[in-house]
């Protein structure tokens, strides 16, 4: 009885919705903290960002977290769809006149639509960045120009062990790049160093792209607006669903949730806006 209750009942579905939702909120915070590095500019900042990205894609702990995140997104979406279908069935015939605005906020009534839009955004977002990071065969690696003392700027790749590989060694064929990021001794076929994927550059290029940069920036900002609405209801709602609720700190949860729903998406949205319009 008890075990099936935890899987099948409508309440259980809500627990999973709440748990995955709250976990995704944590993910948002992590993601935001990383991304905020994009607001700094210059080679140093780019390096920091790329180092961070490298860490995030290679650290085993983070890897596990990322799988939990993928799972949460999928589960949150599927569970949400199942609940929505079930909830629609609970009222086969609707009202001729319904004044829902009298008793609910708009966001709370449109979580499914908002959620679907967010899902579309996530897919787009992953195509734009995540898939390039993981699969793009010609992914740019981070380079810096360094004055070698002779007044001539020379281009170097920065490697994960903190050393530099002259770009011309790759251009002249001494070294070759294999597996997207590894520098190999061309003749010996031995791995020499590993470069950083230049995600900073990818991001900046994306939002500054003369063809679609403006549209992308606007769409990203709009997506964050959608996210804000979703969170505005979702954050406090998750606590209510879990029964993590107590008169003495209900107000705190609600207000924190609202602040979270405004601040986090706003900061996210600032990044493309900054890159496109200011950087």
């Amino acid at each position: 009885m008890a075990k099936s209750a935890l899987l099948k009942s409508s309440l259980a579905k809500k627990y999973w919705m709440a748990l995955t939702g709250l976990f995704l909120c944590l993910f948002l915070v992590g993601h935001l903290l990383g991304n905020l590095q994009l607001l700094a500019s210059g080679d140093e900042a780019a390096l920091h960002f790329n180092e961070y990205a490298f860490f995030m894609t290679t650290n085993p702990g983070v890897k596990i977290l990322s799988y939990v995140t993928y799972f949460s997104i999928l589960f949150h979406a599927i569970d949400g769809i199942v609940l929505t279908i079930q909830n629609r069935k609970a009222r086969p015939k609707g009202y001729v006149k319904n004044n829902a605005a009298a008793n609910t906020i708009w966001a709370s009534r449109n979580m499914a639509v908002l959620g679907t839009l967010i899902l579309v955004f996530i897919v787009t977002h992953m195509v734009n960045f995540w898939s390039r990071m993981h699969f793009d065969e010609n992914i740019p690696l981070q380079t810096v120009s360094i004055d070698a003392g002779d007044g001539i700027q020379q281009e170097f790749y920065i490697t994960t062990d903190g050393s530099y590989v002259p770009k011309k060694q790759v251009e002249d064929g001494t070294l070759e790049i294999r597996n997207r990021t590894d520098f190999y001794d061309a003749r010996a076929g031995v791995k020499y160093k590993e470069g950083y994927k230049d995600l900073y550059k990818i991001t900046v290029d994306f939002f500054k792209n003369p063809d679609y940069g403006l549209i992308a920036t606007i769409l990203y900002a709009l997506a964050m607006l959608v996210l804000a609405f979703h969170l505005y209801h979702g954050f406090g709602s998750a606590f209510q669903s879990m029964g993590l609720n107590n008169p003495s700190y209900n107000g705190l949860i609600k207000n924190f949730g609202k602040a979270f729903a405004i601040v986090v998406p706003l900061m996210f949205a600032l990044i493309p806006l900054y890159i496109h319009f200011i950087l």
């Binding site: 009942s9 409508s10 609970a90 008793n103 709370s108 209801h233 669903s241």
Partner: peptide, 16 residues
């Protein structure tokens, strides 16, 4: 709760 689900009521989405 089991009975509530069986009767065909929807789930709570905390709209209030």
């Amino acid at each position: 709760v089991k009975k509530m689900d069986e009767e065909g009521f929807g789930a709570c989405t905390n709209t209030g």
